[in-house]
Amino acid sequence: MIPMSYYLILSSILFSIALAGIFINRKNIIILLMSLELMFLSINFNFIIFGNFLSDLTGQIFVFFVLTVVAAESAIGLAIIVVLFRNKKSINVDDIGGLKG
């Protein structure tokens, strides 16, 4: 039996990678979306582990809903990117800086 802390460390590492991916990434918004997805997957991992160790189904049901919400979220993210691209002809993070002050 693998102890629970190992799983938790793994999910924390995934979460940190996702956060780093968001903040370090200076190029493409699509990569940003991927990092967000990774973040939510690491959280799902957390829920599944807890659900498993508590022998409770709630965790897994929670994961189901989170997956749905994240899919809707990335759909909206893609839509916003499309609008942004039509306006700016670019989806580079560096080109976003019109609002300052």
Binding site: F15, A18, L19, I22, I29, L32, L36, M39, F40, I43, N46, V66, E73, I76, G77, I80, I81, V83, L84, N87, K88, I96, G98, L99
Partner: peptide
């Protein structure tokens, strides 16, 4: 409006991170 979509993408990214934090 370029401003509008720019504001949206900023709010979207930060909002999604915030949701991730809440969920964590």
């Amino acid at each position: 409006s370029a401003f509008s979509s720019e504001a949206a993408i900023k709010y979207y990214v930060l909002g999604a991170i915030a949701s991730g934090f809440l969920l964590f």
